[in-house]
Every structure is written in structure tokens, then in C-alpha cells.
Computed example of a mutant assay.
Amino acid sequence: MKQPLGVILAGGQATRMGGGDKGLKPLGGRRLLDHVIDRLAPQVSAVALNANGDAARFEGLGLPVIADSVPGFAGPLAGVLAGLDWAAAQGGDSIVTAAADTPFFPCDLVPRLLLAAEGMDHPLALAATPDPDRGTARHPTFGLWPVARRDDLRAALEDGLRKVVLWTDRHGGRLATFPDAEAFFNVNTPEDLTRAEAML
């Protein structure tokens, strides 16, 4: 299997942050997205950014910007599909996604997702962490996705499916469990941004 391509999901509307692009907010003297790129880029063969609207606002990042092909902010699965279409055009056979607002995710995200999906015809795995209430918490914006399933995903989105885990469960998606839930702390509000500064 070739090394996956990386796709950073930044297609949301950031309503709890007051709108705009969370990924461009400052964190530790840099942009939130810079921290995400630094973690993802060494683990994948190339990185693209999934974002909607005017791509020019991300020019300084030096990444290809790919928009959702499904209209109306259809959620993370629409970003996954955009990433799979981009990867297919690059000759890739899989992508790993990471959220644009999660600056501390594990530096071994990709190898552990690949390990979890070992032996699958179409490798599909999500990151998960132990959860005291539910046993396991899945992190659906952090996953390994097969290009071979993109038309199935497109059809599911066109049918109105929006929940990531419904689609991954349908295809026997596996879990890669990481020990530290804090690694997947994501910045949703101004208060979260303050907390992230302290975590740095």
C-alpha cells in the first residue's frame, strides 16, 4: 500500500467561534493550521486543505485547497469525499484526514491507523480514545479512508447521509485506539483557544 495523502478538514462554519476560519486563529504566535500541518505533513506523502469559499485566504499556507463537491455544508463526510477525489487525481489509494482545529493530535496518527486497518481490502479506520462514560470515544474527523470507496460515499451523501460513523460502520471500519484523549482536544470557542495556549 502506498503512503496515504493527508487532508486537513476545515470546511465547517465555526459558528461557536463567531464565524470565520478557526484554522487561521493565532496560537502560540502562529496560526492554528500551522500546528496541524506540522503534525500531519511528516506522516503523509502530500497535504491538501478542504475548505469552502474563497481559497485565496489560505494562500500563505502553500497547500492545494479543495472545496466540497456536495452543496450546503454537508459536514465532514463531504470533506472526506473531496479529499478522496483529490487523491484519486494524484494516483493515491488512500487519505488520512485531520481536523483543522485540533493542534495536538498524535505524531503517530497515520502508522496506527494503518496498523488498525491491516489486512482490509479497502483500509478504513477511525481514531478513538478511552472514554469513562461510553467506554470508547470515536474521533470521526481523524481517519484512514480508501479511494476505492469514493463513489459509494458520494452516493451515500447524495442520499442524505451525514453521520460519519454510520458510513464507516456500514463498511466494517475499524478503530485505532490512542491512550490520550487530550491529544484530540479541539478548539471550538474562544475559551478553548485560551486553553490551547496553556497546553502549548
Rank of each mutant, 00 (worst) to 15 (best):
K2M: 04
G6N: 06
G11F: 04
T15V: 14
R16T: 04
G19E: 07
G19N: 09
G23E: 00
P26T: 09
G28V: 13
G28L: 14
L32M: 11
L33E: 10
I37C: 06
R39D: 01
Q43V: 09
V47E: 00
G53Q: 07
L63Y: 06
L63A: 09
D68Y: 02
D68V: 02
G72V: 06
F73D: 14
F73T: 05
A78S: 15
A78D: 11
A87C: 06
Q90T: 04
G91D: 08
S94A: 14
A98F: 03
A99T: 05
A100H: 12
D101H: 08
T102Y: 00
P106F: 13
P106Y: 12
L109W: 12
D121L: 13
H122E: 15
P123Q: 01
P123W: 02
L124W: 03
L124T: 01
L124I: 03
D131M: 07
D131C: 12
G143D: 05
L144W: 03
W145N: 00
L157G: 06
V164L: 05
W167Y: 07
D169A: 15
G173L: 14
R174E: 12
A176K: 04
F185R: 10
E191S: 05
T194I: 08
R195H: 12
A196D: 04
A196V: 00
E197S: 06
